[in-house]
């Protein structure tokens, strides 16, 4: 006898877990948004779908892992310390270092990819550039399979993450009848402190990005280039530098997202780790209107929420398809995405 399970059209929905799912969706969505920003900025400037962005993300996660090893949190050290009954714990400083290293390394990788693979393709057809991007992506995946540890999939050890502590927010307490049976379970939201840290970090990064794009010279140059690449270069803007900057910025955000996903969510790492989040973040960027920065954030959040809602309804196995279904539906109604402009080609 469970009164909370409502049956809607043959589905049983447990509303007591809905708030929890929404929060989970928000967290995943925040990461998607972070990755989506990289897609959107690059597309804005170069009109190129940077398929390799997901792989930059993957490399960011590995970088975070390696930097934690360098700081002494190797699996060996951890198990030794555990046996000696003196478990290792990390300080926030360790985490900040991991985050910064991941961001920096990703930024460099992004710039390298741009220089070697995309720059030579700049005057070629869009399809040639896209194929190159697919090539870079495949290359990084399979090179990663050769060179990166993946068996068994390492994830950043729990010891590194001191924020496993759980906080609960009770929304409505459990109700019992006279006999003491629960007629309505407690409705609450349980999150780890890590997830809260993650959300806060994402917000900080986005504010920083907004500042960078809006108020700095580099940001202005970037906006000019995304408005009209050729005119911008004629106006004396060093577009090569703008493009490098854009790639570095986007890749750094992906690195941050990767570090947090691997550390706080404990997602297992493998060389194809970037594929799913990458594709979904790209869909998020298109959903919001590719080239549009607020659109990417909106798209990412929607994507995260939609996914968890689908899981909540009971179709978790279709979770990965839902991104595309939403995308197709939205594009058919608004071909430019939610916040993108529906430009009509002037004839």
């Amino acid at each position: 006898m469970d009164l909370v399970l409502h049956s809607v059209g043959g589905l049983s929905l447990d509303f007591s877990t809905l708030p929890q799912q929404l929060v989970n969706g928000l967290v995943v969505g925040a990461i998607y948004a972070l990755i989506a920003l990289g897609y959107t900025m690059v597309y804005g400037v170069l009109r190129l779908i940077n398929f390799a962005h997901g792989e930059v993300f993957m490399l960011g996660a590995y970088t975070a892992l390696l930097s934690s090893w360098v700081m002494g949190f190797t699996p060996d050290a951890i198990s030794k310390a555990f046996k000696a009954d003196q478990p290792l714990t990390s300080s926030p400083l360790n985490l900040v270092i991991m985050l910064l290293v991941a961001m920096a390394v990703c930024a460099i990788i992004g710039a390298i990819i741009e220089f070697f693979a995309y720059r030579p393709m700049r005057n070629q057809s869009r399809i040639a550039a896209l194929i190159t991007a697919i090539g870079v992506s495949l290359f990084l995946q399979y090179a990663g399979q050769l060179f990166l540890p993946a068996n068994p999939p390492p994830s950043i050890s729990q010891e590194v993450n001191p924020y496993q502590k759980v906080v609960s927010f009770v929304l409505s307490p459990a109700q019992m009848n006279a006999a003491g049976d629960v007629i309505k379970p407690q409705m609450d939201i349980t999150v780890t402190v890590g997830k809260i840290v993650m959300l806060v970090t994402v917000v900080i990064l986005m504010l920083a990005l907004t500042y960078l794009v809006r108020y700095t010279k580099a940001g202005r140059a970037m906006r000019a280039a995304s408005h009209d690449f050729d005119s911008a270069s004629l106006m004396g803007i060093n577009v090569n530098r703008v493009v490098t900057f854009t790639f570095m910025l986007g890749s750094a955000l992906a690195g941050a997202g990767a570090m947090m996903l691997a550390t706080f969510e404990g997602t297992a790492m493998h060389p194809f780790f970037g594929l799913q989040p990458g594709v979904k973040a790209f869909v998020a960027a298109v959903l919001g209107g590719i080239g549009n920065i607020p659109g990417a954030v909106l798209g990412g959040l929607l994507m995260g929420l939609a996914e968890t809602l689908v899981t909540w309804i009971g179709f978790s196995q279709y979770k990965d398809a839902v991104a595309f279904v939403i995308l197709i539906l939205i594009l058919l109604v608004r071909p430019g995405g939610l916040l993108g402009s529906n430009k009509v080609e002037k004839v």
Binding site: M121, T132, F139, Q145
Partner: peptide, 18 residues
């Protein structure tokens, strides 16, 4: 194998994009 595919792809794209 897919790395070879990727490398072939990249080399040809960089040398002969058409």
């Amino acid at each position: 194998r897919y790395m070879i595919l990727a490398v072939v792809l990249l080399v040809i794209m960089l040398l002969k994009p058409t």
